[in-house]
Design a protein around this nucleic acid. Structure first.
Lengths: 141, 141
DNA sequence: TTAAATGCAAACGATTTGCAGGCGT
DNA sequence: ACGCCTGCAAATCGTTTGCATTTAA
């Protein structure tokens, strides 16, 4: 089982792209995060260990990571794109409307039903997004 | 059973806001649409019957309509906010990744399971978004 | 050597906002 | 009258892009 770094290096190679120090740094910092990060957040983090990095490079690299399958875009609908590690573990999101707390959830039955719904309409399902919004235990007061 | 116009008028009144000709026009055109519209699209449509209308007024009114419960925001994740009539009929979206075709879908079992997932995590569910992406029959080739 | 990558700043597209004048209530 | 509204343009915000210059392969 190869590590994320090797996986990315291979992806970059097969695409005839280049492995640069910037990309290495960004990947490393990204891997160090858990949960999701915005491009902006990652940019700030990367700058600590790579002062001259440009904002655009982070945006571009995050897209690359997304293309390689290492990162996954998630969109909570607030106008900011977030990225999270894309393991083999798919999950959806349960978000507290008051405090923003976010829990990853997964329900296999729902997953299967989604396939069925698509099939019922003649579609071939490739992916889906499901966001559940509500109040978390702490905020329900 | 009161019509949408009256409903909006009442909402506007209770909020101590005003019913203006612009808002009337925008509501009317919005009601004439079926499916979803972007702010931009609605702006273009409204301009036909109200030449001097401003872009900002449409944006502002759409938010108002959303607040009144008459309209509902939907976000396909492409950076544009769409609005659709918010009847009592909730539905989710099945979107073709190639041609953009969009079908409204609803599965009661999924709806119930979503409640359960939330409850399992101690959350009280207030709303959700579910977007299924895939290839429609025509694009599957 | 040479196509790709970088950093910068300017460009972008959707949405928001400040403001002076207008207009429902 | 009093505030809410409007239309306009300028401002924002996240993100993308053009470009001259490096740099990995």
């Amino acid at each position: 089982m190869q590590d994320a770094y090797t996986r990315f290096a291979e992806y970059v190679a097969t695409q005839r792209l280049k492995m640069t120090p910037q990309r290495r740094h960004i990947l490393e910092v990204f891997l160090g995060q858990n949960g999701h990060v915005t491009s902006e957040e990652l940019y700030e983090l990367v700058k600590k260990s790579y002062k001259t990095i440009g904002q655009a490079t982070v945006y571009r690299t995050l897209k690359l990571l997304s293309g390689s399958g290492l990162a996954k875009e998630v969109d909570f609908g607030d106008g900011v794109t977030r990225y999270e590690l894309h393991g083999q573990d798919h999950h959806d999101h349960l978000i507290c409307e008051r405090c923003g707390r976010n829990e990853e959830v997964l329900d296999e039955t729902i997953e299967k039903l989604q396939e069925e719904v698509a099939k019922r309409h003649g579609f071939t399902l490739t992916r889906h997004k499901m966001y559940l919004y509500g109040l978390c235990p702490d905020c329900r007061g």
